[in-house]
Simulated assay, not measured.
Amino acid sequence: MDYVDELAARARALATAAGPRRVLGIAGPPGAGKSTLAEAVVEALGGLAALVPMDGFHLADAELARLGRADRKGAPDTFDAYGYAALLARLRTPRSGETVYAPSFERELEQPLAGALPVSPETPLIVTEGNYLLLDEEPWSTAVRPLLDEVWWVAVDDTVRVERLIARHIAFGKSPSAARAWVLRSDEANADRVAAGRERADVVVDVDTGTVTVTSTTTTPSAR
């Protein structure tokens, strides 16, 4: 991923800019490679960045069953969007000596895990990734998007993306037929729902071509 160096430099400029802590979002459809890119950027920045994924705010299976949404797990209303926004707001204003513990999502359990990701108050950049960071629906557009200084969109060939999703579901316990059925019914419905977010991104990362396109007129802050 040669383009990671370019993106890491952009993220580093955010991390080292004068002023308050910044929050960088990475969005895209399911299976686009958001997590892989986010992890690579955070690793490249060393201690300058911490990764806090949106997936930690999945509702637990018991609550999804109570709400009648278990068969749509992964849809926008199967996340605690307001809880996610509250955490982002807290992360934007770190307090000296206070470590923030964010939730993660355990793929083996298919459940959120509270208090799994410690974020030091000294870390200048938060990187967060998820499907719905650019969704033009409340509460995502009104409660989440304003808390993100910049959002990147990850684009990849749909055939590659779908096969990647199917392989992921198989790896975590679904049969091949059940995995394909879930992806084509649920994951692809979510992919269609978020597709327009590409037009609202500050940066578009085309994984197939390895190109990075800056679409926003907002420039990355100058480093200290």
Rank of each mutant, 00 (worst) to 15 (best):
F172I: 13
G97A: 07
R22D: 01
A44G: 04
L125S: 05
L113D: 08
V162M: 00
P103Q: 04
A70L: 12
F79H: 06
D2A: 13
E108W: 13
S104W: 10
E110T: 12
D158H: 11
V204L: 00
V162P: 01
A116G: 02
G25S: 10
V203Y: 06
R180E: 09
D5W: 12
H169M: 03
R12H: 02
V212S: 02
S186A: 04
A223D: 13
E122N: 14
P76D: 05
V160T: 13
R21S: 08
V151C: 04
G97H: 09
P30H: 01
E39A: 14
P118C: 09
D208S: 14
R10M: 09
S222E: 15
V203M: 05
V127G: 00
S216E: 01
Q111F: 06
T93Y: 07
D206F: 01
D157C: 09
A65S: 12
A13Y: 04
A86C: 07
V205E: 02
V127Y: 06
N190V: 07
P221A: 15
R107T: 11
G210S: 07
L64E: 00
P146A: 09
S175M: 05
P20A: 14
H169L: 03
G19R: 00
Y101E: 02
G68C: 02
E129T: 07
G210E: 08
V4R: 08
A196I: 02
D61Y: 10
R90D: 04
